[in-house]
Write a protein that binds this DNA or RNA. Sequence first.
DNA 1: GTGGCTGGTGCAATCGTTTGCACATAACCA
DNA 2: TGGTTATGTGCAAACGATTGCACCAGCCAC
Lengths: 363, 363
Amino acid sequence: MQKTSIKKRVTLKDVANAVGVHVSTVSRALDPRTRHLITPEVAEQILKASERLDYRQNAAAYSLKTNRTRTIGVVVPDITNPVFPPIIRGVEDALASRGYVAILGNTDGDMRRETGLVETFRSRGVDGLILASVEREDAAVSKLAAEGLPVITVNRRVDDSTVASVVNDEAEGIRRVLTHLVSLGHRRVANIAGPQSLSTGAARYAGFEKYRGPMGLADDRGLVVFANAFNEAEGERCVEELLASGAEFTAIVCSNDRLAVGAIAALSRHGRRCPEDVSVTGYNDMPMVERMQPPLTTIRIQSNKVGFEAGQLLVQMIERPPGEYVAEHIVLPIELIVRGSTRAIHAPNGQDGDTAKPRVRPL
Amino acid sequence: MQKTSIKKRVTLKDVANAVGVHVSTVSRALDPRTRHLITPEVAEQILKASERLDYRQNAAAYSLKTNRTRTIGVVVPDITNPVFPPIIRGVEDALASRGYVAILGNTDGDMRRETGLVETFRSRGVDGLILASVEREDAAVSKLAAEGLPVITVNRRVDDSTVASVVNDEAEGIRRVLTHLVSLGHRRVANIAGPQSLSTGAARYAGFEKYRGPMGLADDRGLVVFANAFNEAEGERCVEELLASGAEFTAIVCSNDRLAVGAIAALSRHGRRCPEDVSVTGYNDMPMVERMQPPLTTIRIQSNKVGFEAGQLLVQMIERPPGEYVAEHIVLPIELIVRGSTRAIHAPNGQDGDTAKPRVRPL
DNA sequence: GTGGCTGGTGCAATCGTTTGCACATAACCA
DNA sequence: TGGTTATGTGCAAACGATTGCACCAGCCAC
């Protein structure tokens, strides 16, 4: 009965005593990278003993000595926003397999809170940072990267390309959406663009501007309206603005799903049904939008993969000798998901597969 | 121009040298709890200097010395499940104000991964644990608590009441749902119960069994079917099972929103419309269910508050001398949210306001 | 048989804090 | 004025790991 109710944690010294060697020998035997320095049989004994005694390295001591914490900081605007959990999940999956863990912070879109969090994380000695909260202009972040701290932005980027990033192919996403709408016969397509201070908002808007001419869409200035945030309320406001301006359109490309959700709500409040009167598209394919009425046509981004790639890349940066990496920029492909919120315009009768059968009378 | 490109981190010693005192004096001056030991003017100087030099405590050294990390481990089944982010957010908000941070892990409902994560977290020396992933029988968790590690379960509980918890008033939630349905004239109410290995599933089912008799509902055994998981697929499967059994019902009480979402989908596949033919209720009021078609009648839980309370309580437990606390159990009130997925039975025509006032003929 | 390697281990310093204790100096009271 | 008590500060030992260096065998080659 060795049921000591107060368990002291077992240290290297305990293992060393058990085997009859010095702590440094144990330390070396336990680290795969230095194990070759030790006589195989001794190493074996040490492994056995450390197993038997249930030794686990003291993370604090390790950090103090090596200046590495195997911890990385993850900063998001708000974990409650459905866009971010899959990303975080991806990050954690990538980290877990390499023995790292993530600590998390929310900024609520406030840049001062971002810098505050980064401070907190740095003082805890994080080995690297993954930021989902950056704006395009973010001198603080560039400085971090310049100081040699491994940093990656996810989903968004900063304009300064010296900081690594993993993002989605925004322009291509918009191109796909437009192609889809054009194929349904739409020519007057409005755009609810996201905040231009965020790379996602800017890149999607840029895509819209780039492609709408070549695709034969009307390029009225009045067809674009800018949201101040990526949320439902702004989606509603922007639709109000569009309607008030008297602009004519048969479809709205929204810069993300939440804007689209708000847009559809506002449209229906004004007696315009989606998709019968107006087609609406989103961006992100966040959870549940396929269960909405109408189910949302949108661009699926690989959120989980974005996080996973970022996690992997960050660990690489961390474990590479300092200064030996250049800022990588990974762009992941997207996918168009066609659902019920888009429909052919003025199609008097049959056509095929793609979406809804537009047995619709012209207006 | 003191632009040293390689910033050495400033330590207590640096501050001590700057002021001309010993590091121990600096250490004491910086800690509010020991500041009174120092001559006020000296303390002032030290504060100033540490400010000026931008001193920040080395977390690893602190931990090594004090055995405290100001870090707590949070374990959830899957952060991607919309129920959890608000809870996590609440936890983090509570922790942040006290200088703690959270590290996060996902189990995907696998109990072995739970114990693995707990191991990882312990080896990193977390000061406490918040578990959203526990099953009712969880000897490992009880043992943790018994060993003196502060542990709180959130949303769920373990049967062993020695481990603290913050949960919702499940029985009351079910009572409210049933009251609502009864007032709409429903008498044959089915129940898609959640997994009975989870306290939420068990407590809600217990509520159903407890109240349906007294409220005058049919208490056929055949009206209850058990889901093996809280997800849409199981919701669908359970409806199939109900329909196949030939059971008659005009409403289904689902143990959570995702089951309800699945249930509605399966019903409509079988030509039963919600709410016209069958009323359906959920539980949790997770994001977006108000945008579904039909918008879901459900029980709103205070997810954010659950997390916040748990965070607060845990910090209290941590900062109290060991053994000086008893396991507290906090139960938070819920709220019935009536939306479009419930309707009065046999209502031939009009209705209004709330949802349908029971212009109902008794059966 | 001696000198030089080399491979395996131990020694001890170190990372940056906290904290019990010793030691001054000043303050107090008789 | 002398002895006692406060009061503020410094000293040094931890905490548990990593790691450069010294050491000591044993082995090989000459």
